[in-house]
Design a protein around this nucleic acid. Structure first.
Length: 1147
DNA sequence: ATCCTCCCCTAC
DNA sequence: TAAGGTAGGGGAGGAT
């Protein structure tokens, strides 16, 4: 597929402004006469009469009365009244013939309201009878508001277009749907009954269906895409969907099919009827006679009736996935925007549509193209990552390679007109809109249209200007998907080395394929089969490498094939315009033209050095090679994706920050779903923003982004994620770094890179869940005490049982029996019931938790936490009343209850209070900040490496230390000052005088080479802060031990910890340096936390430490803290430092 | 040197 | 009205 976006999308504002003379103003105020006047009238009518649409059932009915004017004041009102009468009549008859459907409650067609278009079998009267009998409705006059399904047997082509224009996304379904549903006594999915001719007009819902069900399984999905088993669901989604379009609607108006198209099509003939035989104009240059070309004289179009419209189980993108949500929301809201909001001219902007993001992608051709690869990967997994090259394919051993490049001709058009043979020779294009004054873009034009100069990327108004009788077809993404599948099925059948380029283009390596010596024969066989199967033509290029094969295809188009033997490559290239080389776009072309290089022959005159100097090493080499027909690429598989993202650069208009945040949030949802859909998580997040250029005029394109500055910021987090909330926090944080007026934003995109498989981190994820973390504390304690060899092996524990016994006594009710036969993960999963008892939870900490964490915990504890907190409120206050320090009541409460570091650690329960007492008594603390915020100093000595070690084992989770292997334990002990070592060797968890802990309390950190923030940070020392920092020393040791556990239990550090800590396992095991470095990094981490929170609430810092402890053990949770906290920092330091703050942890 | 970020360019 | 996306590659320039 050739996609020319350069004119409209990427390049030149100049192009746009040239076009702009016929701009929006012009077109709206110009003589659109009847059309625009009509639509205005319709809008008015629809407003007035909206409420009638759904009668008493209508969600908007209550609203309607206020809009209704006196009856019969105009034709519209008359029609409304008439409709109402007919409906009443219908209702009366319906109740009279009320039919007990299946006894299962709702009748089959409950909520279904059909409009019968044209002659049908059975007749519309019969259909009416079925509807009457089974709780449905039949509308005598079409209304997009009331009608849920259009029933139609077959339509003359002249009607197709009109139907498409008024159906507005409603399903157009064959009457068989009604009959079959009655026969099945349930509402069947309408999708398999779509009218073939019009299937392409129903992207939204059918996309959803396609996702959920294959044709084989649709019977099992009786009706509802939104809510299976509830017939109302499907129906109500239509209500929502149609009311969205209300302002376009023609409520109460009788349908007239003016055969717009028929007149046009009659004019087309003659001139273009044989255009498929013509050579592509561009190919005329540089086509040497030796290049063999074949083109068929014509092709047979498959009989229309045999063109299956079979719905295949396409893999739709997440945007389709969330469509149910979208519909529900619209349904609930009743689309007030369309009823109250007046004209809908903003409807497709972010201003009016709260679900713009989801909606947008479903209708975007570029999105379809851009995401096709992912769908292909899922559809043909064995081909997208299956075959590998045999060495025989390399240049050395197999000098003669054969590559075929196959490319469907004007794919989008071919597919939509494959069942309209009479359109083949007429100028046809695919476009969102047929408005001859519109700025919708032509996506694809067939060759007759190209003869008029119609090109992909043009505005439809320009195309119509060139070719007034151009026939516009809308997109049919499902059909593209279907044909692409057929296309690839054929390719895979004939060749086992297929490299998919796009939905309509692929390379085949046929070197080893049995082609009976003739790749051309194979190419022609394939093309023939493609035509027979899909009804669409394909062209092929055959050459010895991918470059030349591709160029050959260019010559072969349309519907031909071309072989360029190696010996003819030079000739072929010499006159070839440089733009024809893949990799040379308009920018490179312009640059080269400035050097007077127009053809590949001229390009060859330039030395490689010169090219590399002007265009860079790689690009220069590429130019040098390609101009000589040299291409060393091998036909290969689609490689693993390196990034996943989503962006929207159309219709983006925000009126306030809230709008923008909502949009961003939806974008994150989309990206998260895509990540999950691909089974990957990512670490680097890039937010891209298009900002209106200062002097930019109103874009020529309706709702376009116009001329923009492209901005991007990225951040890297330590733990890969696909979690939507994390994405939202990160993107919010990134967004803050731009400091933009949201009104200037014209486009937003979020891209995720540094991907890793979600499977790999699945185990880690399970470990990292809050629940498993809670459990693991008790589990590890238990394992320690156990003599079970599994536990020993896991932690390499060979000793320390004596002490274990002691700690065991300290724990309350946490023991679990480990089954020897259980794997670690099984064991983990089986520990679900082993939560720390409620009485062990710290109220202060609980209350301080971020809401999301609290609610997660609350759920885990069966929602008892809320009560617990309520009960403990008074108690907590009394504790704080007794406190004499500056710290916040809840923090003090927590400290007094002995849980300074860990929420639940049973061992630390016993140690921390002791230590804490010393610190708070003996370390003088200075609060030096101004009145408005804390500014805290931390002793510089605390940052010395030696002080990373706990000053006393009383700070250490001894159970943790005990689990270290002998030599590591020795390492750690060795670093401890002698008096500390004594603590350990005596194994007494005694109190150690503060003076001996080597903590200096008044030094400033002015010597630090850290950022200016540090100076603020270390400026003072409030007592509570020292407490926590001391605690952090202990924490670090715990963390190090945890790291060791990770290593011990899995044989390797978990990927998460490897990255977060960035200390290779071997280093950890081998030397003190490794530990020191790990400690250093962790210390930096702590500092970040301190920075993040210090300016706000000292209490929060405490929470951070609690959470940081979790980070050490369960890294994924760290992300929550990390992303949660960063915005505070942004808010705090704002303009001054916000841009310089990169907290990302370097690899 | 090597990596990272922030772009730009290209293809479909 | 209209749906200007997605992803890879590479270059410039700065940090380490």
């Amino acid at each position: 597929m050739s996609l020319d976006l350069s004119r409209s999308a990427n390049s030149s504002g100049s192009q746009r402004s040239k076009r702009g003379f016929n701009n929006n103003n012009n077109s709206t105020s110009s003589n659109r006469s009847s059309n625009s006047n009509d639509s205005n009238k319709k809008k008015k009518v629809s407003q007035k009469t909206l409420g009638v649409a759904w009668g008493a059932n209508s969600i908007s009915s209550s609203r309607s009365s206020s809009f209704r004017k006196s009856p019969f004041s105009d034709f519209g009102s008359y029609m409304v009244e008439k409709n109402r009468k007919l409906q009443n009549q219908f209702d009366v008859e319906a109740s009279a013939s009320s039919h007990s459907d299946s006894g299962s409650g709702k009748p089959i067609f409950h909520g279904v309201s059909i409009f019968v278009d044209g002659f049908t079998v059975p007749s519309s009267q019969e259909l009416r009878g079925y509807m009457l009998k089974h709780g449905g409705r039949l509308e005598n006059y079409f209304s997009r508001r009331r009608v849920t399904h259009i029933i139609c047997s077959n339509l003359p082509d002249s009607k197709i277009k009109n139907l498409r224009s008024f159906s507005g996304g409603l399903p157009v379904v064959k009457p068989m749907w009604i009959l079959d549903s009655v026969a099945a006594n349930k509402l069947l999915s309408w999708v398999p009954y779509q009218l073939d001719q019009l299937a392409n007009n129903q992207p939204k819902l059918s996309a959803f269906f396609a996702l959920k069900s294959s044709p084989q399984s649709q019977d099992a999905l009786p009706c509802a895409p939104v809510c299976p088993g509830n017939p109302e669901a499907e129906d109500s989604s239509f209500k929502g969907g149609t009311s969205v379009d209300a302002s376009f609607s023609d409520v109460g108006e009788p349908v007239e099919h003016s055969g717009l198209i028929s007149g046009e099509s009659n004019n087309l003939m003659n001139k273009n009827s044989n255009v498929s035989l013509l050579e592509e104009p561009a190919s005329s240059c540089g086509k040497p006679s030796e290049v063999t070309m074949t083109k068929p004289s014509n092709f047979d179009v498959e009989d229309e009736s045999s063109v299956r419209n079979e719905l295949q189980s396409s893999h739709y993108q997440p945007s389709a996935l969330v469509s149910s949500n979208f519909m529900d929301i619209h349904n609930m809201k009743g689309s007030p925007s369309s009823t109250v909001g007046g004209p809908s001219n903003q409807h497709h902007s972010t201003l009016e549509d709260p679900n713009f993001v989801e909606n947008y992608f479903k209708n975007s051709r570029l999105h379809f193209i851009g995401t096709w690869r992912n769908r292909y990967r899922k559809r043909f997994p064995s081909f997208s990552n299956g075959f590998k090259f045999t060495s025989s394919n390399t240049k050395a051993s197999a000098p003669k390679t054969a590559v075929i490049h196959v490319d469907m001709d004007c794919f989008f058009v071919s597919v939509v007109i494959r069942s309209h043979p009479e359109m083949q020779d007429k100028p046809v294009a695919v476009c969102h809109s047929d408005n001859p004054k519109g700025t919708a873009e032509i996506s694809s034009a067939n060759y007759p249209a190209r003869d008029y100069g119609v090109r992909a990327g043009m505005f439809v108004r320009d195309a119509k200007a060139l070719c007034p009788h151009l026939v516009i077809f809308p997109y049919n993404f499902e059909a593209y998907e279907e044909v692409a599948d057929q296309f690839y099925n054929i390719l895979h059948k004939h060749c086992n080395k297929v490299q998919a380029v796009s939905c309509d283009e692929a390379f085949l390596d046929v070197t080893d394929t049995d082609t009976e010596g003739d790749p051309q024969l194979l190419a022609s066989t394939i093309r023939k089969e493609i035509l027979e199967t899909t009804g669409c033509t394909a062209s092929a290029g055959i050459a010895e490498n991918m470059l030349m094969a591709r160029l050959a295809t260019r010559t072969a188009k349309p519907d031909g094939q071309c072989c360029i033997p190696p010996e003819r490559a030079d000739d072929y290239l010499s006159q070839l315009p440089i733009k024809a080389l893949p990799g040379i776009g308009h920018v490179l072309e312009e640059k080269l033209k400035k050097q007077n290089v127009w053809t590949c022959g001229q390009l060859r005159m330039i030395s490689k050095d010169s090219l590399q100097k002007d265009f860079g090493t790689k690009t220069g080499e590429m130019l040098w090679n390609y101009s000589r027909g040299v291409d060393n690429r091998l036909v290969g598989v689609i490689q693993e994706s390196k990034s996943i993202g989503a962006e929207v650069n159309w219709g983006v208009r925000f009126k306030d920050v809230k709008d923008c945040q909502n949009f961003l949030s939806n974008l994150c949802k989309e990206v998260s779903l895509r990540l999950q859909g691909c089974g990957v998580k990512g670490r680097t997040f890039t937010l891209k923003i298009k900002k209106r250029r200062k002097d930019a005029e109103e874009p020529a394109k309706y709702m376009g982004c116009g001329e923009c500055e492209n901005l991007s910021h990225s951040t890297t987090v330590p733990v890969a994620t696909d979690d939507v909330e994390v994405l939202q926090r990160i993107s919010k944080q990134l967004f803050g770094t731009f400091h933009l007026d949201v009104k200037e934003i014209r486009g937003l995109g979020l891209q995720v890179s540094r991907l890793e498989s979600a499977d790999n981190s699945k185990q880690a994820f399970e470990r990292n869940s809050l629940k498993s973390w809670l459990i693991s504390a008790s589990a590890s304690t238990k394992e320690l005490w156990s003599n079970d060899s599994t536990a020993k092996d896991r932690f390499n524990i060979g000793q320390g049982d004596g002490v274990s016994g002691q700690t065991c006594a300290n724990s309350v009710g946490l023991s679990i029996e480990m089954d020897n036969n259980m794997s670690d993960s099984e064991a983990c999963l089986n520990q679900v019931s082993e939560l720390p008892p409620l009485c062990h939870l710290d109220m202060g900490v609980l209350e301080s938790l971020p809401p999301e964490l609290f609610s997660e915990l609350n759920e885990i504890y069966g929602r008892k936490l809320v009560d617990l907190i309520a009960k403990n409120k008074g108690k907590s206050v009394s504790i704080s009343g007794s406190s004499s320090t500056h710290s916040h009541a809840r923090v003090e409460g927590a400290m007094n209850e002995g849980q300074a570091v860990l929420l639940f650690d049973p061992v630390l329960h016993n140690e921390i209070p002791v230590e804490k007492k010393h610190i708070s008594e003996e370390v003088p603390a200075v609060l030096v900040s101004g009145a408005e915020s804390y500014s805290v100093a931390i002793p510089a000595s605390c940052l010395e490496k030696t002080d990373l070690m706990p000053s006393s084992l009383s700070q250490v989770d001894v159970t943790v230390l005990q689990q270290l292997p002998e030599e590591l334990k020795a390492d750690i002990l060795e670093v401890l000052p002698a008096h500390r070592r004594q603590d350990v060797s005596s194994n007494v968890l005694s109190e150690v005088p503060l003076e001996s802990k080597g903590i200096k309390t008044t030094e400033n950190h002015s010597g630090s080479k850290d950022s200016v923030l540090d100076n603020n940070l270390w400026a003072g020392t409030p007592p509570q802060w020292v407490d926590k920092f001391k605690v952090s020393n202990c924490l670090i040791l715990n963390i190090l031990a945890e790291m060791y556990y990770e290593a011990g239990s899995t044989g390797n550090l978990s990927p998460i910890l490897q990255r977060a800590i960035s200390v290779p396992k071997h280093q950890l095991d081998a030397s003190q340096d490794g530990w020191d470095e790990a400690a250093h990094i962790l210390r930096e981490l702590l500092k970040q936390y301190i920075k993040l929170k210090i300016e706000f609430d000292i209490e929060e810092i405490y929470v951070c430490f609690c959470l940081l402890k979790r980070f050490a053990m369960k890294s994924e949770l760290f992300l929550h803290v990390y992303t949660d906290v960063f915005p505070y920092l942004q808010a705090s330091f704002g303009e001054n430092y916000g841009g310089n703050l990169h907290i990302s942890l370097k690899d």
